[in-house]
């Protein structure tokens, strides 16, 4: 860990006042402290967000608002969240461990860095960490890596479970820097790696995520987050699916589908959604729709199984929501 200075401002204006260009925010610290110890992140200045007012979880006619500093644990068990958006609760409860969820914030969760082992080891090259140094994952160990949205510079997955649920629900993030604010859909917020994998999102230096907005979707009460992993708890996903289903008798009226563990960003699947909409509620519909999830997938040496597994994950989640089991 490199020496750094520390500040704890009490207003958003103060916090976003561009001080040092390479300064970093800290919320729960469960990502950034790790990465500072590993020397992956070396901010000369750390700005603590915890005295800021970016809190609160409220349901309104427009939908759900979650302050960026709310804890993963509190959000997961919030009655409005659990009742209206089970997919969010489940995604959170299947993330990390109870201890980490008690520390980690929602804003920090969306900005967590990839778990790619090469990114986290400063003794190896990594285009995300050191642009232009190369990507050893492509020819190295890549069982956990992405098959969608990859480029010749980077194949790292986005690791957040919550983000997958939020992308499926077409949520937005509210950003603020100084007095200027903007709202971006989360899907637009995240960037594909292409040739610039170090640019993971549209956040500007010094800009904050202040809150998350989830549009109202009454039928999201029928939603779920299915996470496939080697062990039962405390592991990132091999594949995951965030699914909501609007069912009318034996017809599918509408759906939301996004997948995790397979994409360089949380992977929204409007094609799958369309393939489900208006179709009969049958396994055949699910299988045909799930196929569309992997259009353009590029497998690597150790992760080709994800092409199959992610479809199965979607199908299994749909079976559960559709009551077909």
């Amino acid at each position: 860990m490199r020496p750094f200075t520390y500040e704890s401002p009490s207003s958003v204006l103060e916090a976003t006042n561009p001080g040092h260009p390479d300064s970093a925010f800290i919320a729960g610290g469960t990502t950034i402290v790790d990465l500072m110890k590993l020397e992956v992140m070396k901010p000369p200045k750390v700005v603590d967000l915890n005295a800021l007012p970016m809190r609160g979880i409220e349901m309104s006619p427009d939908g759900l608002r979650i302050g960026a500093l709310e804890k993963m644990s509190d959000t997961a068990v919030h009655p409005e969240v659990a009742a209206n958006y089970p997919v969010i609760s489940e995604a959170l409860l299947k993330s990390a461990s109870a201890q980490i969820r008690n520390m980690a914030s929602i804003g920090g969760n969306l900005l967590q860095r990839t778990r790619c082992g090469y990114f986290r080891d400063v003794n190896t090259p990594c285009n995300k960490r050191e642009p232009g140094s190369g990507c050893p994952a492509i020819g190295g160990e890549n069982r956990m890596h992405a098959i969608l949205g990859t480029s010749s510079s980077c194949v790292a997955t986005h690791a957040s479970d919550l983000a997958v649920a939020l992308v499926a629900l077409e949520a937005s993030v509210r950003l603020q820097s100084g007095a200027s604010e903007r709202l971006l859909t989360l899907d637009d917020f995240y960037l594909l790696p292409d040739g610039t994998p170090h640019q993971e999102n549209q956040l500007l230096p010094g800009e904050l995520i202040t809150e998350i907005r989830v549009p109202r979707l009454p039928w999201a009460t029928r939603s779920t987050y299915l996470k496939i992993r080697d062990r039962e708890s405390y592991e990132f996903s091999l594949t995951s699916a965030a699914v909501a289903l609007d069912v009318n008798g034996d017809q599918i009226r509408d759906a939301r589908v996004a997948v995790g563990g397979v994409g360089t960003k949380p992977w929204n699947l409007p094609e799958v959604r369309e393939a489900l909409t208006g179709k009969p509620l049958t396994l055949e519909t699910f299988v045909a729709a799930a196929k569309l999830a992997v259009a353009g997938a590029v497998p690597l040496k150790h992760n080709a199984f994800k092409i199959d597994l992610v479809q199965r994950t979607i199908i299994r989640a749909l079976i559960k929501l559709g009551g077909l089991a």
Binding site: G140, E141, R143, D230, R231, S233
Partner: peptide, 29 residues
Amino acid sequence: LLEGSVLEEKTGRYGNANFADYLVATNAD
């Protein structure tokens, strides 16, 4: 079901030398 050290053929480096990637059973397992 879970454990196994991933030795990279090319480099001789363990690709999962930490407790997030070298999986031991949790209580839930």
